[in-house]
Simulated assay, not measured.
Amino acid sequence: MAEPKENPFLDDPETMDEEFDLDAAIDEDPDAGPDRARASFEAIVTERDELKDRLMRALAETENIRKRAQRDRMEAEQYAGTKLTRDMLSVYDNLRRALDAAGEANDAVIEGIQLTLKDLLSVLGKHGVTLVSPEVGEKFDPQVHQAMFEAPVPDTKAGDIIQVAAEGFKLHDRLLRPAQVGVSSTPAAS
């Protein structure tokens, strides 16, 4: 009985990457050829499937990164001026105080301050900034208002705004500064 011949493709890892010659393998060992060819084919198919899966995952990840970058870019464009806008709010506040302090002093000065306030709000509006200006008697909303104090006030309900200390501002859908308000607590007896 003849000893089985060694298959160099199965025993030597360095030859695993070499091209497999089916005819030569069959000539060396006619019984091992088709099995070796089938095993080699299955290994190649398995490797192809693994590479295809990795490629699909890499493409999906690349698409997710592209979408995330686009969303981040749009958000950066929309909210890039947040710091400047917050700094400009003090200008608005000072003009509002000047208008309140002017009283009946000089009609020209009051008109100038009013026009400046209107112009400032217009410029801010062009950049997506809107005024949050609650009215006395509205319901307190913690999403856009900041309670500065609570006081019992007759003829009000708990949670009603009783005073507006400072207006708030939004940049698009983000709150830059809440409106500062006084809120009614449990009403005092009338």
Rank of each mutant, 00 (worst) to 15 (best):
R71Y: 14
V183P: 09
T130G: 11
V129G: 02
L131Y: 06
V181A: 14
L89G: 03
A188G: 08
A189M: 13
V123W: 14
A147W: 03
R38S: 00
E150I: 08
K118F: 11
M148R: 12
M56Q: 13
A37N: 08
N7C: 15
P8S: 05
R97F: 09
F41Y: 00
Y79E: 06
Q70D: 09
N106S: 15
V183H: 04
A58N: 09
S185V: 03
V109S: 15
D35Y: 05
A179F: 04
Q180T: 11
R68S: 13
D173M: 12
T62K: 13
K5I: 14
P154A: 14
P187G: 03
E14Q: 06
D29N: 15
E63C: 01
V91C: 10
P8N: 01
I26R: 12
P134W: 02
R174H: 13
S190Q: 06
A24K: 04
V153E: 07
A158E: 13
R38H: 03
L99C: 10
K67T: 06
A105F: 11
V144A: 04
F149Q: 09
G182C: 04
L115K: 13
D31N: 12
V164K: 10
I65Y: 12
D23R: 14
D119V: 06
I113K: 05
E150W: 04
N7S: 09
L99Q: 15
P178Y: 10
L59T: 02
D29H: 04
G159A: 07
E19M: 00
D11R: 15
D29L: 10
G103C: 10
R36M: 00
V123Q: 15
I65H: 08
D29G: 11
D119Q: 15
G125I: 12
A76P: 01
V181S: 05
A151E: 15
G128N: 08
L124C: 09
P34E: 05
E104I: 07
G33C: 01
G128F: 06
K170Q: 04
D17S: 00
E150P: 01
L89P: 13
T15I: 04
V164C: 06
T116N: 12
S90A: 07
N106A: 12
L124V: 09
A98T: 03
Q143L: 12
D53Q: 10
V109H: 11
V132R: 02
V153Y: 10
F149N: 08
A32S: 10
E138V: 06
E167G: 07
S133C: 03
A179E: 02
A108W: 03
D29Q: 09
K139A: 07
L59G: 00
I161P: 07
E50Y: 03
M74E: 13
L124F: 08
V144G: 03
D141H: 10
G81V: 11
G81N: 15
Q70A: 14
K52C: 02
L124G: 11
P134K: 01
L131G: 02
